[in-house]
């Protein structure tokens, strides 16, 4: 397959990352920047190693909440998007509202979720799902709409039922669009989980990454904050990579157009 990633695709960004880390290390030492303002990569690495036990558990908790939020967003988004296209009236009346909801900043909603669902996993998962669901809805709606009008006519010619048209034409035609939406949702689900943990992460016996960030910020343990942020990025990247992998397999039938 032509879309396979070659070693150059891995090497080039790796070189960039290493170069940036070296530059950062050099800059911190050269300008003698205090650790609480900007720790050097070595100090972050040290904090990562020292706190490895709790940080690993924190990462797992955040990853769990993100996967749960993403899964809920994927299922709900595809279902809601499909329902919206069932009738033109629903699509006109409700779809613009979902776009509007998307504009409401999550940091404003997350405290409300904490009030409604209490501290702990449910509020964090809900926060993750709430941000991730909208791109899935939007991509499902536009994907279902994207079916070739000529193919629609063909289905009309064959007297296809609404259900047949949905399963055999609109849903398959929507796959590339839905996959794009799911990729966006994977990144947003991580953000949603972390923001959720800022306001509702202090239930349970293990502090998730968002909580680690908040508490260490207060105590100026900036190196640990950086470590937690890096781990949060790893969580987001891993989920994104998994979704991309699965979707490229699903898309094999559709490429190249």
């Amino acid at each position: 397959m032509s879309s396979r990633i070659g070693w150059r695709d891995v090497l080039a960004p790796s070189i960039t990352v290493v170069a940036l880390l070296v530059l950062w290390e050099v800059a911190v030492r050269a300008f003698a920047i205090p650790e609480y303002l900007l720790p050097s990569p070595r100090q972050v690495a040290a904090a990562l190693w020292e706190g490895r036990g709790p940080l690993a558990l924190a990462t797992l908790r955040t990853a769990g909440a993100t996967v749960a939020g993403f899964a809920i967003a994927a299922v709900m988004g595809i279902a809601l998007g499909s329902v919206l296209t069932l009738s033109r009236w629903l699509e006109r009346g409700v779809y613009p509202l979902t776009l509007l909801f998307q504009m409401v900043p999550l940091v404003a909603i997350a405290p409300l979720l904490a009030i409604w669902l209490g501290n702990g996993a449910p509020a964090v998962i809900a926060s993750s799902a709430v941000v991730a669901v909208f791109p899935v809805i939007a991509s499902t709606v536009s994907g279902l709409r994207s079916a070739d009008p000529l193919a629609r006519e063909l289905f009309r010619l064959y007297n296809a039922s609404r259900w047949q048209r949905w399963t055999r034409l609109e849903l398959p035609a929507a796959v590339p669009s839905v996959v794009t939406g799911l990729r966006v949702a994977a990144g947003l689900a991580t953000i949603g989980a972390i923001v959720g943990e800022f306001v509702a992460g202090f239930g349970g016996d293990v502090a998730p990454l968002g909580m680690v960030i908040v508490t260490n910020l207060r105590e100026f343990h900036t190196d640990t904050v950086f470590a937690a942020v890096a781990l949060a990025a790893v969580v987001g990247f891993t989920i994104y990579a998994l979704v991309s992998l699965v979707s490229s397999l699903a898309l094999a039938r559709y490429l190249p157009r």
Partner: peptide, 16 residues
Amino acid sequence: LPWRSALDNVALPLEL
């Protein structure tokens, strides 16, 4: 339909 094999495309009217 681009996601269907030639055979499945030909079978579509019968399938429906």
